[in-house]
């Protein structure tokens, strides 16, 4: 028997692997929208309430912003809204214009550096307050006050 895997060991092993995969699936939220270095998913519209001079995001209805390090776009042509919301740290969110001030291209969130990068060749880089870190962008990108209130993110426009 030495060196051979028994039927029981095989069944236990398989069960362990399968349960591990299931746990990873749940913990990792494989089906949840995730931002990349080049793109952010659209914020779930059902999470968003648009006021005259403010936006309210019900975070319980916004899986795209659930994980720290994720970002989501808010785009509404009628109301001229083009915003990127970043979940930078636990209970810390930022909201900024999603356009670079240099080439007017979308910006993306680089989670490893906690910075925003323009998607064009000159790739201007901004911090989370919108200030230019490097690159040819002539001015900061517009940032909006974002406050966490009882499970909602309130953004002042």
């Amino acid at each position: 028997m030495d060196g051979q895997i028994t039927r029981r060991e095989m069944i236990y092993g398989s069960a362990l692997v399968l349960s591990g995969a299931c746990v990873c699936q749940v913990a990792g939220g494989a089906d949840k929208p995730r931002s990349t270095n080049c793109h952010a998913p659209d914020l779930e519209p059902e999470s968003l309430t648009i006021g005259q001079k403010s936006l309210t995001i019900d975070l319980a209805k916004a899986p795209s912003l659930e994980a720290v390090g994720n970002a989501a776009y808010i785009m509404d042509k009628d109301r001229k809204l083009d915003i990127i919301v970043v979940h930078a740290e636990r209970d810390e969110y930022f909201a900024l214009s999603r356009f670079c001030t240099h080439a007017y291209r979308p910006i993306s969130y680089i989670r490893t550096r906690k910075l925003l990068m323009c998607n064009n060749a000159s790739h201007s880089i901004f911090d989370l307050t919108g200030q230019v870190v490097k690159g040819p962008a002539p001015e900061p990108i517009k940032s909006y006050a974002a406050k966490l209130v009882a499970g909602t993110l309130q953004i002042t426009l």
Partner: peptide, 20 residues
């Protein structure tokens, strides 16, 4: 030739995807 700073693809202003 582009560089590591170039996106493989991203969504342009008009909503269409582009491969720069």
């Amino acid at each position: 030739g582009g560089s590591f700073t170039r996106c493989d693809r991203y969504r342009f202003l008009d909503g269409n995807w582009t491969e720069p």
